[in-house]
Design a protein around this nucleic acid. Structure first.
Length: 424
RNA sequence: GGAAAGGUGGCAGAGUGGUCGAAUGCGGCAGACUCGAAAUCUGUUGUACAACUUGUUUGUACCGAGGGUUCGAAUCCCUCCCUUUCCGCCA
């Protein structure tokens, strides 16, 4: 959500941001709407002021036993005019709000401009891509051969994009989630949170899923939205609040299931459990001051990277281009993990600085000591990391020729000391 | 799900149609007293938007949310949300 005052002061910057997003300039239209709205508002306020004064006079005169008929008639006339103006003003205000809330965040000056992922820039690559003396298999084949992954049966009871995991493989997924959560809370200073998985409209609006992306979400029969990421609940934990500067940054993490309809991705990644309607993800959220948010983005990305490093998974960090970034983001780094079975890097995490974009939508503010008024906080979110995809990455990177999977050192304590998963 | 009582400023808590943005207490901030602190005393203390003469200015809105009644609503009416208590059900 844009700050209308900022648009008034930086119309050309506003248009440039839209252009980099592949959209038409709008500043002229927005400023015209804004001007009309404000002149309406001023006229309306003058009427309200007059009405208030006259009404107060009525009270006064009545007390003194005077005659109030003529004043009441006067107020009546004002009221009639007000009703019309009021309606028009509300309409104008709603139109501006609807337009502004449908526009994506401005891309930061530091990120590449481009229409889509082709313009993304690889920032760095870490880890060693493993070599195999055999042709490495994809995770779904490995899982099926082990007898621990059943997509077919899941399809029978739930349809496409669901999976059963069994035995040690199910435990490995749980181990990954616990390992991530423990690492973020004990080493990275994040506070563990347990959050609602179902939210109302206003929360989904706050983080930017609504109104534009409702078709990507699942909704219950009584109107709740299933969270597509814990970002929704974690970030909205400060919705409507005025925080103290000394309490920032807030660093929050939660391990939750995520629910996505995957409406726009029919036919993509249909094999195995790469793209599911339901998956676990450890989410990181930071609430910061405006001056700290860019440093926090670097820090958050490192926290997510640390998980992949500890797991011994090779990956690259990609700075997303203006055309590939999500709706709410100001700057985004994706972490792409190496998948030997697919022989390429695939997204496993996305860390974004949303600036004040979400904070304005949910009215999350902070106060500086000694300063009057409030400012919106900056919000950041990142996957730290997607658990289902981490499972895939571990399976494919740690596979042996006989189809067994070596368990990474850091996960063994979570696996009761088990070192390898093999068919029994 | 049934019944009842409620939702007021950072917190507690008055206010049931007319200078109520809202008493009072606590907290916060500033000052006095003090070598300093505590106690005490004095003052001050919400948010957002708009306007212009950009000011310790003026106006408007905000007492859970949205509607309504009225010349005038924190106060009356309707709908919704939330909280608490009791009952029922339940992991």
């Amino acid at each position: 959500m844009y700050d209308i005052k900022w648009i008034r002061e930086n119309p050309q910057e506003f248009d440039l941001g839209l252009e980099r997003r592949g959209l038409q300039p709008l500043s002229e239209q927005v400023l015209k709407m804004d001007k009309d709205y404000r002149s309406n508002q001023t006229a309306l306020q003058e009427m309200q002021s007059k009405r208030n004064t006259l009404s107060a006079t009525i009270g006064q005169v009545k007390k003194e036993g005077g005659d109030v008929d003529s004043i009441m008639r006067e107020v009546s006339e004002i009221k009639d005019k007000m009703a019309v103006l009021e309606e028009d003003t509300k309409k104008k205000g709603d139109e501006i709000f609807a337009l502004l809330s449908s526009l994506p965040n401005t891309p930061d000056a530091s990120i590449p401009t481009g229409p889509d992922e082709s313009a993304n820039v690889v920032v760095r690559q870490e880890g060693v891509i493993p070599t195999f003396s055999f042709t490495p298999k994809e995770h779904d084949e490995l899982g099926a051969n082990l007898g621990m992954m059943d997509v077919e049966q899941a399809g029978k009871i739930s349809g496409a994009r669901f999976t059963f995991l069994k035995g040690p493989l199910a435990r490995l997924e749980r181990a990954l989630g616990q390992f991530m959560l423990d690492t973020h809370t004990t080493e990275h200073g994040y506070m563990e949170m347990d959050v609602p998985l179902m939210v109302r409209d206003n929360a989904a609006f706050g983080t930017g899923q609504l109104p534009k992306f409702r078709e990507d979400l699942f909704q219950t029969t009584n109107g709740y939205w299933l969270i597509p990421t814990a970002e929704v609940s974690l970030t909205n934990s400060v919705a409507g609040k005025i925080l103290e500067e000394k309490d920032l940054p807030l660093r929050l993490t939660a391990l939750t299931p995520c629910f996505r309809s995957e409406a726009g991705s029919a036919g993509r990644d249909t094999k195995g459990m790469f793209r599911q309607h339901q998956f676990y993800k450890d989410e990181l959220v930071s609430i910061t001051t405006p001056e700290d948010s860019f440093n926090e983005l670097e820090r958050m990305t490192k926290c997510a990277e640390n998980i992949l490093q500890k797991l011994g998974l090779p990956y690259q960090v990609v700075c997303l281009s203006s055309g590939d970034m999500s709706f709410t983001s100001h700057k985004t780094y994706d972490l792409e993990v190496w998948l030997p079975g697919q022989n390429r890097y695939r997204e496993i995490s996305s860390c974004s600085n949303c600036g004040a974009f979400q904070a304005r939508r949910m009215d999350a503010r902070f106060r500086r000591p000694g300063e009057k008024g409030t400012q919106h906080v900056h919000t950041l979110n990142g996957s730290g990391v997607a658990v289902g995809r981490a499972l895939i990455a571990v399976m494919e990177n740690y596979q042996k020729e006989d189809g067994s999977i070596v368990i990474p050192e850091v996960l063994r304590p979570y696996m009761g000391g088990m070192t390898v998963i093999k068919k029994d």
